[in-house]
């Protein structure tokens, strides 16, 4: 069966509208952020950076940005540590209930956000953790753990289990095994997991809304509350910023993948050239 090559002109023509549909709404916020008007309008009638400097000069928006960065910082660190070590611990091990453990780790991906939000709200109230970014960061960590877990697990799939035994027979303790055997293999997975965790946390709104307080309002929550009574271009500025951050994150990941692929593509050739027995 002959399949349409992705380079076929018709495939290209068909993909353009899809691409536009996906990208244009996101891209529109960027010019809006450069609008001079006091309201959100499109197309912008006069270009200026007034709204942007306004955004960075506004303490309320700045504290929202800081809260977001703090929450996602906590989420990234906790999720990578927990998800990564869970993946390493489960690697190459079989025991009854392994599937259940894996299911519990991945569950936050499937449970509806609003259900999680309510659960977190009740939990953090009952333990008296309110009014700071910490609960938001921890909640975001919970929903980010599956991403870190899955990306690290994907990296470990290619690991030869004999490497661990080999390292310990050569004198490596648990720490050295982690450093010399696991870490080089899972590093790309950790980076990917951290990027995922960051992007999950930075635009998470539902849980952050439930756990918000005047001293802990994240960027998306601030946008959501402002938009209801005060349609300033600062909202567009923060959206544009989120889009930029997400795009940068994606680019970093693409670079990682391309670099690894090109190395992998070169290696069999050099290995084949050396096949002299």
């Amino acid at each position: 069966m002959k399949r349409a090559s992705p380079r076929h002109p018709s495939a290209l023509i068909a993909s353009v509208p899809v691409f536009l549909f996906l990208v244009v709404p996101t891209a529109i916020v960027v010019p809006v952020a450069f609008n001079r008007s006091r309201y959100i309008t499109f197309p912008p009638d006069q270009l200026s950076t007034e709204a942007i400097s306004g955004f960075f000069g506004d303490p309320a928006w700045m504290s929202a940005l800081l809260a977001s960065l703090q929450a996602s910082g906590i989420a990234v660190v906790v999720a990578v540590l927990l998800g990564g070590s869970a993946a390493v611990a489960l690697h190459g091990r079989t025991f009854p209930g392994r599937a259940v453990v894996t299911g519990v780790i991945i569950a936050p991906m499937i449970v509806p956000a609003v259900v999680m939000a309510l659960a977190f709200y009740q939990f953090f109230i009952s333990v008296g953790m309110v009014g700071t970014v910490l609960p938001i960061g921890l909640a975001h960590a919970v929903i980010s753990v599956p991403y870190a877990f899955l990306t690290v697990r994907a990296g470990l799939a290619g690991l030869n289990p004999a490497l661990v035994r080999s390292a310990s027979s050569l004198g490596a303790g648990a720490f050295s095994v982690m450093r010399f055997v696991y870490l080089p293999v899972i590093r790309p997975g950790l980076v990917a997991g951290a990027l995922f965790a960051f992007s999950v946390s930075i635009d998470e709104t539902v849980i952050a809304l439930f756990l918000q307080s005047p001293s802990a309002t994240t960027l998306p929550v601030k946008m959501f509350t402002d938009i209801q009574y005060n349609l300033t271009p600062k909202i567009a500025v923060s959206s544009a910023m989120l889009v930029t951050v997400a795009t940068l994150g994606l680019l970093v990941q693409v670079c990682f993948t391309i670099r690894r692929r090109s190395i992998a593509r070169l290696l069999p050739l050099t290995a084949a050239a050396d096949q002299t027995g």
């Binding site: 030869n160 490497l163 080999s166 390292a167 310990s168 027979s169 050569l170 490596a172 010399f180 080089p184």
Partner: peptide, 30 residues
């Protein structure tokens, strides 16, 4: 004694060389 303290040289069927290290680094590892 854990494996690391038994002082035995083990060669596995799959060789189990560390892929991210050069041959010399592999040999230096122990």
């Amino acid at each position: 004694l854990p494996p690391k303290d038994r002082n035995l040289g083990v060669v596995f069927q799959s060789y189990a060389l560390f892929p991210h290290m050069s041959a010399a680094q592999n040999v230096e590892f122990p």
